[in-house]
């Protein structure tokens, strides 16, 4: 079957190659080109356009003079960012927050998937999967709303329980040292079920014969998880890990921004929210573009390092 298709395709190819020039092929495929024209134009304008716009980081940009008319100023804004007193704090907040969410957001779905894979009660398994998957569909705005209400000191669930047990109410969102934990664990709450799906898929692909023979050999359940289940999801884990390391500097701007208040700004200001405030609230376009570019470059370097390490250590890598 397969070879048959290849055969016909190959003969077709040789026929076209012999009889027609590339120009004629292009003419014959004009409908395909017409189709892809719109997406290509879209990508050129809305993905490559802003990439060209990065030059404003090296210019003294003003809306009036436009990108081309503005003066070149080189690395002035990069130097300005690196020497601001905020720099160290921003970098630390960004890196700590994303490393923390990376670790927690990575381990919890794996544990959930392994546990779901072990249970024999299909109804229970389906229920757990359905319930834990649901929060993924909640929008960021509503999610932050839920966090604020749940931890509220005026009738929030946690404080109600604390009061019931005779404790003092706590203003969770006002305590800087609590902020990261709230951000990360609410993220786990929302993303755990979604993250588990992909591992469940990988686990269901384990050859039943391997499991059967391991049972015959008297392998215990914990051993089976360690020697069969975990190795079988390892390639998926590696790829996802590389991808998320490449995103380490892209902390979810939307949620961080909504969770900020004056009391927690010391730990909650990250590079992307800083870019937004400087660029679109204070209209310092060039400076904030430079900060954004710095962020992307660090990100890309991290991606390359992660990929190189993964290739050394294991077999899977992105390229």
């Amino acid at each position: 079957m397969e070879s048959g298709i290849n055969y016909t395709q190959n003969t077709l190819k040789t026929i076209t190659r012999k009889k027609t020039s590339p120009w004629l092929v292009f003419l014959r495929q004009w409908q395909l080109y017409a189709m892809i024209l719109l997406p290509v134009v879209y990508i050129l304008i809305f993905a490559y356009g802003p990439m060209f716009g990065i030059v404003v980081a090296f210019k003294d940009f003003s809306i009036r003079r436009g990108i081309l008319g503005s003066e070149w100023i080189g690395f002035k804004y990069f130097e300005q960012f690196l020497s601001t007193p905020h720099f160290y704090n921003l970098l630390r907040n960004t890196v700590v927050l994303s490393l923390y969410s990376l670790v927690a957001g990575f381990i919890m779905p794996i544990i959930l998937a392994l546990a779901l894979n072990e249970t024999k009660n299909i109804l229970f398994k389906k229920t757990v999967q359905m319930v834990t998957f649901f929060p993924y569909f909640i929008s960021t705005v509503v999610m932050v709303g839920i966090i604020l209400q749940f931890l509220n000191s005026n009738g929030g669930f946690v404080n109600n329980v604390i009061k019931l047990l005779g404790g003092e109410t706590i203003n969770f969102m006002g305590i800087p040292s609590m902020w990261r934990h709230i951000y990360v664990w609410s993220g786990v709450w929302q993303g755990m079920g979604y993250g588990a799906v992909i591992y469940i898929a990988a686990l269901s692909g384990v050859d039943p014969e391997i499991i059967e023979s391991s049972i015959i050999d008297g392998v215990s359940r914990p051993q089976r998880v360690w020697y069969i289940d975990i190795p079988s999801i390892l390639p998926t884990v590696t790829i996802l890990l590389i991808l998320s390391i490449g995103n380490i500097m892209n902390v979810g701007f939307e949620k961080v921004y909504l969770m900020q208040n004056n009391l927690n700004l010391d730990v909650s200001e990250v590079i992307s929210t800083y870019v937004y405030k400087r660029g679109l609230v204070n209209y310092q376009y060039s400076y904030s573009t430079a900060v954004g570019l710095f962020n992307s470059v660090v990100n890309f370097i991290l991606l390359i390092i992660a990929n190189a390490v993964a290739r050394r250590v294991g077999e899977s890598s992105l390229w």
Partner: peptide, 30 residues
């Protein structure tokens, strides 16, 4: 379509945008 002539070029053109982007401010200016 494997016989589409511009296939690999367009694929590369599209894939690059998954790893690089202009960022918030240049997009806003656009």
């Amino acid at each position: 379509r494997k016989d589409f002539q511009g296939r690999s070029f367009v694929t590369v053109l599209f894939s690059i945008t998954m790893f690089f982007s202009g960022g918030m401010i240049p997009t806003y200016l656009l």
